[in-house]
Design a protein around this nucleic acid. Structure first.
Lengths: 158, 158
DNA sequence: AGTGAAAGAATCACTTA
DNA sequence: TAAGTGATTCTTTCACT
């Protein structure tokens, strides 16, 4: 489905989607039109979900990252839907996954102050949500930044 | 430092950085030149770290997301540097944080098969890295997608 | 996959409030 | 210090080869 050129294009776009068609085309030894056709195809087929700016958390006063693991005893689909709806409304929540294993949900928060995390956690525990166990920790250092939540394109040596 | 217009621009760019200058300008009631100057300033001051395509993991055969928590008993800065260097070379690793609390590191992997996670974990445990405890779980469902690892711009109700 | 032309967008010197 | 006009240059897009 994807040849080497397509993969290269995706990889380049992932790092910088503002590169001109010409620059991209040159990098894969094509002229602009065939390159453009490939990009259009990749978009249409859904390989490219969107193109967004990556902002600086700290500059935006959201320098505190918190990871929250949640255990619950609620397993109805009704409860789950309500839970997700509420979580989705909270802008602090950057990442939300239902996971396998000891805990049921994983979340990543980005906030300005410790207090915000505290308020958030208290809401979860004291609220009507029936959560059994909420454990959180904080990011001290982030060493892999640009890959963050972007699909890797080049294949793994594994 | 940032007025309301700047915040609006950042918010729009975060969702879609391929919008034309004109479209952005209209949305904030400006003409293209002053809008362009603002964007340039936001870029230069570092609010915008980059602009990248958001790719589809599943289409790229990287549909399995794994979360790994690691505990170690190595606390020298020398060991840490080596550890980070090795981790950074593994393309499966999408996210890597040093964290506070019970565990020392948090990682998110994106891979094609369960086997890749297994190989990865075995490497960590059996390797020369001196890891004490490695626990992993898998993503079942991801309900908050586009916000992922992008700084939130609009303020929280908290 | 490539050429070339037409439409569209970004960039900047200069002007205005 | 911030916004606007208009000219120039660069980019995208597409019919045709």
């Amino acid at each position: 489905m994807l040849d080497k050129i397509d993969r290269n294009l995706l990889c380049m776009l992932q790092q910088d989607c503002k590169q001109s068609l010409q620059a991209l085309a040159e990098a894969v030894n094509l002229t602009s039109t065939p390159c453009w056709k490939r990009l259009k195809r990749l978009k249409n087929k859904g390989y490219i979900r969107g193109r967004g700016a990556l902002l600086d958390n700290e500059k935006l006063n959201l320098g505190l990252t918190s990871f929250v693991l949640i255990k619950t005893q609620q397993y109805s689909s009704e409860w789950y839907r309500t839970f997700v709806q509420r979580i989705a409304k909270i802008p602090d929540v950057l990442v939300f996954y239902r996971i396998s294993g000891e805990y049921d949900y994983f979340m990543q928060l980005e906030v300005a102050y410790m207090k915000s995390c505290d308020i958030f956690n208290k809401r979860l525990v004291n609220g009507v949500l029936g959560l059994v166990d909420v454990t959180s920790s904080f990011a001290m250092e982030n060493k892999i930044y640009h890959r963050a939540t972007r699909a890797r394109v080049k294949s793994s040596p594994n």
